[in-house]
Simulated scan of single mutants.
Amino acid sequence: MSDVTPDRTHPQPAAQDVETRGGDRAQYGMCAALAGLGIVLLVNSAQLAPVASSNDSLGPRVIPTVLGILLLVVSVLYAVDIHRGGVGAADEGEDVDLGAKADWKTVGLLVVIFALSAALMEPLGWVIAGTLLFAGCAYALGNRHIVRGVLVGLAISLGTFYAFAIGLGVNLPAGILQGIL
């Protein structure tokens, strides 16, 4: 038996074609999107009112401004890399059949579960709706241990309910469990 692993040290022919043309337009589009997001952050941070406080010496403008500048720098560096011939590795997928069609049944079931969870959030409360959300999503994605899914969903829902209530001071809807939780 011999190992038939392909040699990845030499660029693929398609990658060489991209290099000779000066880069891929889709990658330049990503550069433009990053630059656009950076500009939006800079414009919005410039419109923030200055706030003077003894607790916050920096104010609310600093973080969006720094992030906007960093996004602009990254977009320029990315564009230079693309122009010099930098090409990302093609997605191959480990155990995924890249030629397979989408599983619309699973996607539809997930959409229904999310919508049902959102609709039941107020009347039933976060704990019950979150439990149904987790267990339903786990089932839609292939888990057939229904009891385990419900128990794990209950643990996650209760944990997040109390983390928000005690840790953050944010009250999630309790629903029908109002006096119990």
Rank of each mutant, 00 (worst) to 15 (best):
V107Y: 05
N143D: 15
S157A: 02
C137A: 13
T106D: 05
G153S: 14
D103E: 13
G108S: 01
G125T: 11
A140N: 12
T131C: 08
R148E: 11
A155S: 01
C137W: 01
R144N: 14
I146Q: 05
T131G: 04
R148L: 10
L141R: 07
H145Y: 10
H145A: 12
F114E: 11
L124D: 01
K105P: 02
W104R: 00
A119E: 03
P123V: 09
L151I: 13
R148A: 13
A102G: 05
I113F: 01
I113N: 02
L116P: 02
F114H: 10
V150F: 00
V147S: 15
A140Q: 14
M121E: 05
Y139D: 03
V111L: 12
K105G: 04
F134C: 08
Y139C: 12
L132Q: 10
A140E: 15
R144H: 10
I146T: 10
P123R: 05
V150P: 00
K105F: 02
A138W: 08
A140F: 08
G130L: 11
G136N: 10
G108W: 02
G149K: 13
M121H: 01
R144D: 15
F114D: 12
T106R: 07
S117H: 09
V112S: 07
A119L: 10
L110P: 03
T106E: 06
A138F: 00
L133V: 06
C137L: 12
N143T: 14
L120D: 09
L120Q: 04
L132T: 11
I113K: 05
G130N: 11
T131Q: 03
K105W: 00
